[in-house]
């Protein structure tokens, strides 16, 4: 088995006096789409933020593309090729679509074995997100929630990442946009990107992910392939419950 793109070892995080994550260990392989699932407050977003270096109090190790990135600052982590799309999108509302993309721009990079990573330009991204191509000079603040969600992903891709952390891509957007987002993730996987996403919507996760880690109260309670989860109604009921 080839070394994982992202390996999380005994990761813990706290917020003030409250401990939120307990000794999480998991992996994302190269070209794999992995879903972190669980109820609200289970620790999915915190896990992603901790990997990205955005939580002040953290213990444990995170290895990315063969390097230990624990303790690095968010910008240093981003410069190693780890992309991050936050759940609340955080588009720069005073900047146009093109300017938003420019903020995310980073040089092209390669995987540890020397193969070049997929690289992105605004033109290529406009092909992936035709909606954005119609409004290159629109201000971020004048876009709908769904359009902002796409811009947020596109902005992350401008950094030519090797792996993308997608926090709740289906939260708070209309079903039609959720569907487009699912199609996009499948496209990105074909390009060779690895993706770690946090998700509550099991239907969405089924459309895109290879494997699943189920979180509850900051701990991993179950792991398996997407197919195993689909069959295992007990696990769905216990940790997600439709």
């Amino acid at each position: 088995m080839s070394a994982a793109m992202l390996a999380v070892e005994n990761l813990s995080a706290s917020y003030g006096a409250a401990r939120i994550l307990y000794d999480l260990s998991f992996e994302v392989g190269r070209g794999e789409v992995v879903a972190l699932m669980g109820r609200n407050g289970a620790g999915k977003s915190t896990t992603i933020k901790t990997i990205m270096g955005l939580m002040a109090q953290r213990q444990g190790h995170v290895r990315f593309n063969g390097r230990d990135i624990s303790g690095l600052k968010p910008f240093e982590i981003a410069r190693l090729g780890l992309g991050f799309t936050p759940e609340d999108r955080r588009i720069f509302v005073d900047l146009t679509v093109m300017e938003n993309l420019d903020i995310g721009r980073q040089p092209a990079r390669s995987f540890a074995d020397g193969t070049p990573a997929p690289s992105w330009s605004p033109e290529k991204l406009f092909a992936l997100f035709p909606n954005l191509a119609e409004m290159p000079h629109r201000l971020g603040g004048r876009m709908s929630g769904g359009e902002q969600q796409m811009l947020a992903v596109a902005r992350t891709l401008m950094g030519n990442p090797l792996l993308v952390l997608l926090d709740e891509p289906s939260e708070g957007v209309a079903p039609l946009i959720v569907e487009q987002m699912a199609n996009t993730i499948v496209e990105l996987k074909k390009e060779g990107l690895s993706i770690l996403l946090s998700e509550q919507n099991v239907h969405f996760a089924q459309l895109v992910s290879d494997r699943v880690y189920m979180l509850e109260k900051g701990q991993i309670r179950w792991q398996g392939t997407m197919a195993q989860l689909t069959e295992n109604v007990d696990v769905q009921r216990a940790y997600l419950t439709v």
Binding site: A174, P175, L176, V178, Q180, A182, N201, H203, F204, L207
Partner: peptide
């Protein structure tokens, strides 16, 4: 057309 799409993201 404008909202649900094919509906596969809320299968039930």
């Amino acid at each position: 057309e404008v909202y649900f799409g094919t509906g596969k993201t809320f299968a039930r």
